[in-house]
Design a protein around this nucleic acid. Structure first.
Lengths: 233, 233
DNA sequence: GTCTATAACCGGATAGAC
DNA sequence: GTCTATCCGGTTATAGAC
């Protein structure tokens, strides 16, 4: 009766070990940086053997996926009050992006390494990879809320693709943020405000009925290109 | 008289060894990929001891700087006939970008790894780093030729910044290309043609005298943001 | 002082016993 | 599912050769 003894609802057998390893790793990454943190040190801190850490996580890099998920959850929480309060599309967009910068701030030091693989299509860490699909999908859904629950009216074809476009915009902001050493990330915040205004202008221009042909061909191009870049989406 | 014996103009003492190591490394990277190529194998292939390779190159990654320089030179050569032939800005831009895709094609397999550090501000391999400044500056100069020797007339303030903007555009194209597995990189080529047309339209609209205020504020934003992203440029 | 070679070190990853 | 013992390859220290 030993394996069947546990009650349903309790954290499964080794699930606790897994969480312990991840938490330890993230804490050490934050304190000493990614490179300086060895797998041996993580295992030691988590109270397990080195090999055991590899039983739960394929590689050191795979620990980072957990990091993505964690910061994303924090971002979601920070967005709730903003989305409840603001109804204007631009205000919602700015709010969500500033919240991203806010919640990511504690990890600025190590984020460079964490996003290292953004450009490597084969890496599971790339935001475009299928391994990143869960978080990516969720982040796009957040942008869908930004758009759908705003008080503006948009043509259907545009409203459909806009969330993905805004997610790409967010990725670009993050890339800029990685290189931003200005106090308070002032430059990134400026970039957010200016490009959000730009997005609003583009959207409103693109929404004129007269713009339909141009809009259609632009959206077709987007669809076509998307296919290749994000096979999982 | 042994050290002073050599004639001026001959390839300096160890300069040959350096070149041998680099050539061997690039060949092996291309054949087996970056990860699979060990420093021991490179040293062996170049006929030197392992430690010797580190005398000439700080790290395995530093071998990649040589790679950047090499492909850039090839790109420059490929652009000459295009720039001599075409005088229309769009045609010149498309020609230069397609040439980039052409010359980079043999290295597509390994480029993912090579650009891994694009997002890491601390890495000397980042295209924005000061270590990459020589190649970056040269690539921007190429874009300046694309603009300056074209037959269109541009307002001075725009013509001044356009080369840097076009270089950023090129970086974005390359990022897309890294993820592009379509035959003949058809999607990247499509992206080039469509965005080059878009650039042309934007440039011509921005050149209207009536657009001067908007153009000025857009260029000011660009100047302001550039400062942080590329301290070396 | 410029270059080359040998022998470690260190840390990510794996094999296989318990 | 957890451990111990190794492997493997990037990197470094160091001793010498030209």
């Amino acid at each position: 009766m030993s394996p069947a003894k546990k009650d349903a609802g309790a954290p499964k057998k080794g699930e606790r070990t897994r969480a312990k390893i991840l938490d330890t790793a993230l804490a050490l990454f934050q304190e000493h940086g990614y490179e300086a943190t060895t797998m041996r040190r993580i295992a030691e801190g988590a109270g397990v053997a080195l090999g055991n850490a590899y039983y739960y996580f394929e590689s050191k890099e795979h620990l980072i996926q957990g990091f993505y998920a964690k910061t994303h959850v924090e971002h979601l929480a920070a967005c709730e009050p903003i989305l409840a309060r603001e109804k204007d599309l631009v205000a919602r967009l700015k709010g969500v992006l500033h919240a991203k910068v806010d919640t990511a701030e504690p990890y600025h030091r190590i984020s460079g390494v964490l996003f290292k693989s953004a450009a490597d299509p084969k890496s599971p860490l790339s935001p475009f990879s299928s391994a990143s699909a869960p978080v990516r999908t969720d982040a796009i859904e957040l942008m869908r809320r930004v758009v759908d629950e705003s008080d503006g009216r948009l043509p259907k074809d545009l409203a459909e693709r806009l969330p993905e476009m805004l997610w790409l915009h967010e990725m670009a902001i993050i890339l800029f943020w990685l290189h931003d050493e200005s106090p308070g990330r002032a430059r990134t915040r400026h970039l957010i405000d200016r490009t959000a205004d730009l997005v609003a202008k583009l959207v409103s221009v693109a929404s004129f009925p007269l713009m339909k042909p141009l809009r259609t061909s632009a959206l077709e191009l987007f669809d076509e290109l998307k296919h290749d870049a994000t096979p999982g989406a």
